[in-house]
């Protein structure tokens, strides 16, 4: 962990609050800094708002009626909660991986080629190169190189999730949001994905929501602990897990509730 040089802050959340349909408030004045090219883990008990917080970073919540965010989320200094923000541009820059793998109903190749064809002007050859590179990057290439025409839905759960990661990184985003990416996946596949996330760190700013504290401890640089919609404590992962400053954090990481 490089502490001598202060890393650039990629995303700054300021006084971020969130409301579901009917006015139910899920987040209260969240302040959080996401350093560039580091892994930030977001932990906390179920229903504490960690996914909700993550889902404001690409404004994916706006698909659903009646959900709204207040405050600021600054991506490179620009407030993306501003209604004038172009969502397509935003989502091109901020990719997302979901809890359940979501391969599109098309071949393995087309799943990865989809964002390439959508966002970039590329020749067929360049697309093939980049599909391979993305699948390599997602540690999936060796397993699927002979079945690129097979439906993405025919892969195993862990492979599907890595396919989704390949699809997300093929779009060359700046930030990768991961919403409990391994909670629907078996332990061996989970380790593969954790290893992969560590390797993606050098190219992408990663925010990962997890309910698995060992996972947060294993892979993240910084950890934020959420409780009942508020950020209780943020700091270097080492410190959060060995010398938490807040009583609540300590209770949670030692398994006294959660």
């Amino acid at each position: 962990m490089d502490t001598q040089q202060e890393p650039k802050i990629k995303i700054r959340a300021r006084k971020l609050s969130f409301f579901y349909e009917g006015g139910h408030q899920a987040l209260f004045d969240n302040d959080l800094d996401i350093p560039e090219r580091q892994i930030t883990a977001v932990i906390g008990p179920s229903g504490c708002g960690k996914s909700t917080h993550l889902r404001t970073y690409n404004r994916i919540y706006s698909l659903h009626r009646g959900q709204r965010a207040e405050g600021e989320v600054l991506l490179d200094g620009e407030n993306i909660l501003d209604p004038k923000t172009d969502l397509l541009t935003l989502r091109r820059r901020v990719g997302m991986i979901f809890q359940k793998p979501t391969p599109f109903p098309m071949s393995v190749f087309d799943n990865v080629a989809y964002p390439l064809r959508l966002h970039f002007k590329l020749s067929r050859k360049e697309i093939e190169e980049r599909v391979e590179a993305a699948l390599q990057g997602a540690s999936l290439w060796d397993e699927v190189k002979d079945q690129l025409r097979k439906s993405g839905l025919a892969l195993s759960g862990g492979q599907q999730q890595r396919l989704c990661i390949a699809r997300a990184i093929a779009a060359e985003p700046e930030v990768l949001l991961m919403d409990e990416p391994t909670s629907a996946i078996d332990p061996v596949a989970t380790l593969k994905i954790e290893d992969l996330v560590l390797r993606l760190r050098e190219r992408f700013t990663i925010v990962i929501v997890t309910h698995n504290m060992q996972q947060a401890a294993r892979i993240s640089d910084r950890t934020a602990f959420f409780y009942k919609g508020r950020i209780i404590e943020v700091g270097p992962t080492q410190q959060i897990f060995t010398a938490p400053k807040e009583k609540k954090t300590e209770e949670y990481i030692t398994g006294r509730f959660g």
């Binding site: 994916i60 979901f98 959508l118």
Partner: peptide
């Protein structure tokens, strides 16, 4: 078709129209 499929389409920077016609309708075809 689960909402997460819609969300993952939108999260890649697809328009609502594209998500509906090329992904959701395909999944429900």
């Amino acid at each position: 078709v689960p909402d997460t499929l819609r969300e993952s389409g939108l999260a890649l920077g697809l328009t609502r129209c594209r998500v509906t016609l090329q992904i959701i309708c395909k999944a429900a075809r």
